[in-house]
Write a protein that binds this DNA or RNA. Structure first.
Lengths: 193, 193
DNA sequence: CTATTTTTAGTATCAGGTACTAATTTAGTA
DNA sequence: TACTAAATTAGTACCTGATACTAAAAATAG
């Protein structure tokens, strides 16, 4: 009896291919052939069918993105990853503090990152085209260190016609490290004080 | 009489080469040869001597930058350019709002950039190894738009042993757009509330 | 006017492909 | 079970944008 390892279907392989290349756009056809255990021609046929460009073109367009600054928009939208969101009610986001976000001498996170996480979460919770921070009271309760994972929890306390009051508490584990109270306007015209 | 167009010196050409490639990293050796009116070999010798990698390697490393998030958040070190600084007294910084810092739909600057400018200026004014924001009251007085130039002015109001109170007002022209009051600790141990 | 530097020319080779033809294998079905 | 269609593999010629190298020609300096 010959043991035959069931071959992947074409469809499945192509789906996986997309994922693999997305995950590592630097991979060559040869390497792909090895990982999927098919010939290099199959990989190339797959790429053609799906419409994935060759390695060098992928790199070029990624480089162009860097150059054009197109990409940074995405990155800068929301600081931290929103993992839970009930519009107009509450939201949770996490942010792991990395090298770039700390003072080198102390390894302590720069305050504006912690603020940015809280602020962008608060904005995200407000389900509006236009939502602008008008006022904030904030407390940094204890320093946050490199590699700590910040969990920001936002809760809408009050909602008026034109503005909302949102409380954001940020934790490392169970320990609260930061508190903020935002007043966010959502009318077309922002009213300052 | 033969009119001879003076040939560029090697040194000069190599300087220009660096600049040209920096300005447009997507240029091939062939195109470079044409623009400098030398042979492709000369361009290659030049690149070797200077240590500029070939086009494809340049693109690859640019792509890697995108991928690695090295460029990541521009909320890096100090947000804004500090143009005046009297330690423990006052400071001024300017920040021009660009595409990446605004909401695409409205062209209005995200609040955390404005905060970040103020916060990093306040930290810069405190002449200490360790200076951490403990508390802040902030008001966004009017929205700030794309291409507006923010001028943040920080003034130390009070100084205690372990902390300072700093006021930051941010202007566009003569118009105040943002106000903040920071309490910044400068002892080794930060005391939260 | 020669010695040295600089530049150009040319060839072989490489990576990572495209584009194409043809053969082989596998799977579906009458 | 045999036939057919789909899928896969093999192989070749060619492409771009290079490296690495040798050698010759031209320009410049001493």
């Amino acid at each position: 009896m010959v043991i035959t390892i069931a071959r992947m279907t074409k469809k499945r392989r192509q789906q996986d291919l997309v994922e693999t290349i997305e995950k590592n756009p630097f991979i060559t056809d040869e390497e792909l052939a090895k990982t999927f255990d098919v010939s290099i021609q199959t990989i190339r046929l797959d790429r053609m069918e799906i419409g994935i460009p060759e390695l060098r073109k992928r790199l070029k367009s990624m480089a162009a993105e860097t150059y054009d600054n197109v990409r940074s928009l995405q990155l800068n939208e929301v600081i931290g990853e929103v993992i839970e969101l009930q519009l107009d009610q509450y939201g949770i986001s996490i942010l792991e503090i990395n090298q770039e976000q700390v003072f080198q001498k102390t390894g302590i996170a720069r305050g504006h990152y912690i603020f940015a996480q809280a602020n962008s979460l608060a904005i995200a919770v407000i389900n509006q085209e236009i939502a602008l921070t008008a006022k904030a009271d904030i407390r940094f309760i204890r320093p946050v260190y490199l590699n700590e994972r910040l969990i920001a929890k936002a809760k809408v306390l009050l909602s008026y016609d034109d503005r909302s009051e949102i409380e954001v508490n940020t934790y490392v584990g169970n320990e609260i490290v930061f508190k903020a109270l935002f007043i966010i306007y959502r009318s077309n015209e922002i009213k300052g004080e």
